[in-house]
Design a protein around this nucleic acid. Structure first.
Lengths: 222, 222
DNA sequence: GGCAAGCTTTCATTTCCCTTTCATTGCCTG
DNA sequence: CAGGCAATGAAAGGGAAATGAAAGCTTGCC
């Protein structure tokens, strides 16, 4: 994972950079707020470790500007200020975690792991295939940002196909995933849903292929 | 929003429940740690207010178990212990904010608002959607500056929809956020509130869409 | 060609949602 | 304390969308 460490004290910066590199991360270091702000506006990072006391632009300002640009990257704030007010301030600005100095290296590493894990977990929230994307949390599909109106059954079928994109799914398997155990549904009904889905997905950059005798497969259109 | 208040002192519990209910929240009360732990494992809350000194299981343990289950609900910790150690302990366990006893009611309410706002990923004080705006501090809705007359239930429903604007909210989820545990309300009643809200929001530039099978969604009118 | 698998349309049924009505409750006011 | 009023939510009827069976048609494979 690629991290940005924003820390003006060269000793601490070097110490943390070494430790985090040893954990297998790629660590960039910014020594002041302006430099951090610039890096963050065009480089993609998986995590930011942000000191508050910085030359030229303080950490709160860096954070505020970051969030104002709509960047959702997880931010771990480091600070010597232990007051609740400072913590509340940081969290209100969109920090994801907070660590007061001095801290144990082990604790920092644990929090970095936790934040990365959490943000990775969020990403399995957005399934994509070609121009089609799916948000499991809200059960919504969209094509190039345009929401796609699907019926519940259609959503269920498409979801299964999406999770197994590039792999064939038999009609029987589909039927089992789509209805509850206590219900009875002929696998032939899948043909109807696939038919309706194909119409609605006509210009979505995604197609449902038929693999005769095997089932259906979601794939990007060519 | 539906809150859980965990407080063993009946006087304080009643006082806070009344105050928070007056702010338009649905407030359940748990009088000991075990009860709180059980409620938190199967009821959805938007916020937890957690006293530390509790019978049967202390607040730290409740918090630890809550986070271990992966529950991310915001937690505001109340405590008579003013030491930094206790505070750090609570925050390390995953508390989101910290308030020492005694406290002003106004401060508690402010922190509750801040946590609710932050947990929804919003940064502005006033929630907005199209021409409709909502002031959390005073619980007032207005359209183009004109105040909107809503009943308490209508406000509660609209608030939930507003916090999740652009995302569908099922009737069941709505019902759970709008009423307390000891109340009984059929999800079908949501249809009535939505119906009444739609009439009152007729020319507000905001519509409540029906996503069949999914729920309702607040969106700007087109 | 023949057959099986899949495609498409039709349509009755079911499910979900909208809307109105009305009994009940709690609060305000005289 | 009575009467009025607003809020609430259950019930029921109507209607639109979703569903899935049936049946005829098309396509691919031998």
């Amino acid at each position: 994972m690629r991290l940005l460490l924003v820390e003006d004290n060269p000793d601490i910066a070097l110490w943390l950079q070494k430790a985090l590199s040893a954990s297998g991360h790629a660590v960039d270091v910014a020594a002041d707020g302006v430099q951090a702000d610039q890096l963050l506006s065009y480089e993609p990072y998986a995590l930011v470790i942000l000191d508050i006391g910085l030359p030229r632009m303080d950490g709160f300002e860096v954070l505020k500007r970051l969030r104002r640009r709509g960047n959702k990257v997880p931010v771990l704030v480091l600070t010597a200020q232990t007051g609740v007010d400072a913590r509340v301030h940081g969290l209100d600005l969109g920090a994801d975690d907070y660590l007061g100095k001095p801290f144990e290296l082990a604790e920092l590493e644990a929090r970095v792991r936790a934040l990365l894990r959490r943000s990775q977990g969020k990403e399995d929230g957005a399934l994509q295939c070609g121009e089609l994307s799916f948000e499991p949390a809200s059960k919504r599909y969209s094509v190039r940002g345009q929401p796609l109106a699907l019926t519940p059954r259609e959503m269920a079928v498409l979801e299964v196909l999406l999770y197994r994109q590039g792999k064939p799914v038999s009609k029987e398997a589909l039927a089992e995933q789509v209805v509850r155990l206590d219900q009875d549904l002929s696998p032939d009904a899948m043909e109807i849903y696939v038919h309706r889905l194909r119409k609605k997905l006509a210009d979505s950059g995604v197609v449902i292929l038929t693999l005769r005798g095997l089932g259906y497969m979601l794939d990007v259109a060519k």
